[in-house]
Structures are given as structure tokens and as C-alpha cells.
Amino acid sequence: MLNMEKRLVGLAFLLVWSAVINVTCGVELTFELPDNAKECFYEDIEKGTESSLEFQVVTGGHYDVDVILEGPSRQILYREIKQQYGQFQFTPEHSGTYQVCFSNEFSTFSHKLIYVDFQVGDEPQLPGVGEHFTAMTQMESSSQKIHEDLNSVIDYQTHHRLREAQGRKRAEDLNERVLFWAMGETLGILVIAVGQVMILKNFFADKKK
């Protein structure tokens, strides 16, 4: 029983440590891009390191944005014009600082909410896994499987949150439009009713000679 508790504690420590490693290995954020503005992010990448870029416009305007990824020598690796979603994987041939820029300069009144995930390199193994030359134990195999499943769950949750945010924003916009349309119809009905009353009253009023 005591050994089982120690194993569970060790497994929990591995999972927490893996979550910390997963957070520090990539850049994942959501930011606001004002109208007629441009925002850039920079990342130092070594030669031959597999990297990936993923973005999605969550809310704002027509859900589109301009994206450009440039290398250290200002060479263009990836470019998209007025896109809502995009994903790009690349392996740099030169070490240096790479930059990805999001532009909303074509829009003059609507700001955007953008999600970006910039991953660099492979995720490191769990502590203790791969440090010996023998086959992994059943506990290590289970920890590795749980770690991979948790990463998949995090990815699914992130994309579902983005879809939920998009749906909520569209529902709020639709609700606002319906409210304004209802208020306009109510005002129109009141104006017509008052006008009809005034006209009918004028028909039955005594006219002075």
C-alpha cells in the first residue's frame, strides 16, 4: 500500500513537471489587434529545429487578418492575405531571429482578437524517461501515455474554447441587431399609431369657416 502511494505521488509529480515543461516550450497567446495596426512577435530559432505556426481570428470584422513570417535575412517564409485561419510548419536553414507579423492595416474601424501558437522544437521527454538503456517500465509507459493524452486534451480544449468564443460573439452581435431592429419597429408602430389618431381626429374636428 505504501509503495502504491509513492508511485501515485511520483506519477503526479511527473504530470505536473510535464505540464510546466509544456508551457515553457512554446508561445501560445491571444491578443487584441486594433484597427489600422500591426503587431509582430520574435523568436530565436536554431538551424534545423522543427517549428510550427498556427493562428486564428477569434472575433472582429470579417474574421480576417494579414500574416507574414520572415527569416533572419528578411526572406519571406509564409504569407497570407485576409485569412481567418492558417497553419504552417517549417525547418529553418539558418539560425537567427524569426518574426511573425499580424496586420490589420486594411481595416479602419474594427479591431480583431487573434489566437497564435508558435511552437519551436520537439517537446522534451518526461524526467527519468530515456535516461536508462533498458526498456521503459510499465509505470513509465503509463506516464508517457497519460502525458500525450493530456496534451491532446489541452489542444482540443483550446480549439473548442476558440469556437465557443466565436459562436458567443456572433450570437451577441445577432442579439444586438435583433434588439435594434425591434426597437426600430416599435418606434415605427408608435409613430404610425399617433399619426393615424391625429388624422382621424382631424376628420371629425369642426372646421372654422
Rank of each mutant, 00 (worst) to 15 (best):
Y115W: 14
P34F: 01
F88A: 02
I68Y: 04
Y156G: 06
A171N: 04
Q138N: 13
T24Q: 07
H159S: 04
I68R: 11
H111A: 13
V67L: 13
L53G: 03
L113Y: 00
L179A: 12
V65H: 04
F133I: 12
E123K: 15
V100T: 06
V27I: 06
S141C: 05
S18Q: 09
S143C: 15
N151A: 11
Q87N: 09
K169S: 14
L174D: 12
I192F: 13
F102Q: 11
Q89H: 10
E148Q: 11
I81F: 04
G128C: 13
A37D: 15
A12V: 04
P72H: 05
R79F: 05
K209Y: 05
R163F: 04
S141Q: 15
E50K: 14
A165G: 04
R170F: 01
F13Q: 09
T108P: 00
G128M: 10
F109V: 02
D206L: 08
Q83F: 00
L14S: 10
L77V: 05
P34C: 04
H160Y: 10
M136N: 14
G60C: 06
F90A: 03
I45L: 07
G86R: 05
G184D: 12
Q166N: 02
T108Q: 06
K38E: 14
F180S: 14
K208P: 01
L53T: 07
K145S: 10
L179E: 12
A19P: 00
V194T: 12
G71N: 04
K112L: 11
Y115N: 07
K207I: 08
L162F: 08
H132D: 07
K47T: 12
Q125C: 02
Q83K: 10
M4G: 02
V16A: 02
I76N: 03
E105R: 10
G130M: 08
V27A: 03
R74F: 10
R168E: 13
G10C: 01
A37T: 08
P92E: 10
F102C: 05
L162S: 03
D149H: 09
M1W: 09
D35V: 00
G60I: 03
A19S: 09
A37F: 05
V57K: 01
L174Y: 04
T186A: 14
K47A: 15
M1E: 10
K209T: 05
K145A: 14
F41P: 05
D44G: 03
G71W: 12
K38Y: 00
G10R: 11
W17Q: 08
L126A: 10
K201Y: 08
H147Y: 14
D35N: 05
L11C: 01
D206P: 08
E50G: 09
G71H: 08
R177T: 09
T186S: 07
V16F: 02
A135Y: 11
V178Q: 11
L11A: 11
M183I: 13
K38V: 05
L11Y: 06
S18H: 14
F118T: 01
G188V: 06
T49C: 06
D44V: 12
A193N: 03
G184T: 13
S143I: 02
N22G: 07
K47E: 15
F13I: 08
F55Q: 02
A171I: 07
L77K: 10
K208M: 03
N175F: 06
Y85Q: 10
E148P: 00
F180K: 15
I76M: 11
R74V: 06
R168I: 07
D206H: 07
G26H: 12
E123W: 12
C40N: 06
G26N: 11
M139Y: 08
L200R: 08
T108N: 13
